[in-house]
């Protein structure tokens, strides 16, 4: 069975009608860095890490539909420099102190930094003051580490049917808020089995009492690059591989 193709960094990538560039690339075994995209959810297109050049124009690979004959650039020095800068901005606008974070080694933000060869934070740190919500008996919400990917918002709304999370404020005053009478997690409907409690790519939403089951040094991204890991995980998630 033959599929139409587009060209990604010199390689012909087959796709099915309606697939995004990201879906087709993932199915073909090509990793495009991303943070807000998760194949289990409707694409969001907000982190801009997956920006690729399509026929010379910048597009988010997670939302842009594939079409026959497109010339797409992704793994170029220019685009990776931009991705590194975006990742550095995410680091400085929150409080991402890896040595003290129990997600370290399993964190997609950190792993993206590793993948892009990020050695420093480049920009002045904001050191914002964001409240921790430890009120829930089983789930910790540490807003210092939130990157506003809205995966918890989407999971709670679209999968759990609970609407526990939302983003309030604008620009740098954005914050993750909880839909409960007190604004606290303990008074929300969130439970430990909810997708929203499990989906956080960073250490902002953590299940309590499980943080150190795997020792630092033996975790996912201590052993492998996120490029390899994400392809394996996301191809399985969507059954995306072509025949």
């Amino acid at each position: 069975m033959s599929h139409p193709t587009f060209n990604l960094d010199g390689q012909d990538i087959p796709f099915s009608e309606g697939q995004t560039l990201m879906e087709a690339a993932t199915a073909a075994g090509v990793y495009i860095p991303h943070l807000c995209h998760n194949p289990e959810f409707t694409p969001h297109g907000s982190c801009k890490l997956c920006t690729v050049k399509v026929n010379g124009r910048n597009c988010s690979a997670c939302t842009f539909p594939a079409s026959a004959g497109q010339q797409v650039l992704s793994n170029t020095r220019e685009l990776n420099d931009t991705r590194r800068a975006l990742t550095q901005m995410l680091f400085v606008e929150g409080n991402h102190l890896c040595p003290g974070c129990e997600k370290s080694g399993d964190c997609l933000l950190q792993a993206t930094g590793y993948h892009l060869g990020m050695l420093n934070s480049r920009f002045p740190h904001f050191f914002p003051h964001r409240a921790v919500d430890a009120s829930h008996p089983d789930i910790l919400l540490d807003r210092d580490r939130c990157i506003f990917c809205e995966l918890c918002v989407r999971a709670s709304r679209d999968m759990d049917g609970k609407n526990v999370f939302g983003i309030a404020g604008r620009g740098i005053h954005n914050q993750l808020v909880v839909n409960s009478p007190t604004g606290l997690l303990k008074d929300s409907e969130l439970t430990v089995t909810d997708k929203a409690a499990q989906v956080c790519p960073v250490g902002a939403i953590l299940i309590k009492r499980h943080g150190f089951e795997t020792p630092i040094g033996q975790r996912t991204f201590d052993r492998q690059d996120i490029g390899t890991e994400a392809l394996a995980r996301e191809q399985t998630a969507e059954g995306l591989t072509h025949d």
Binding site: N95, H96, L97, H125, R130
Partner: peptide
């Protein structure tokens, strides 16, 4: 050369920053 997390991003001492 900035060596280690504290030199690079303030590290754990920066927990007092807020």
């Amino acid at each position: 050369v900035a060596v280690g997390a504290c030199a690079i991003n303030g590290g754990l001492p920066a927990l007092r920053n807020h």
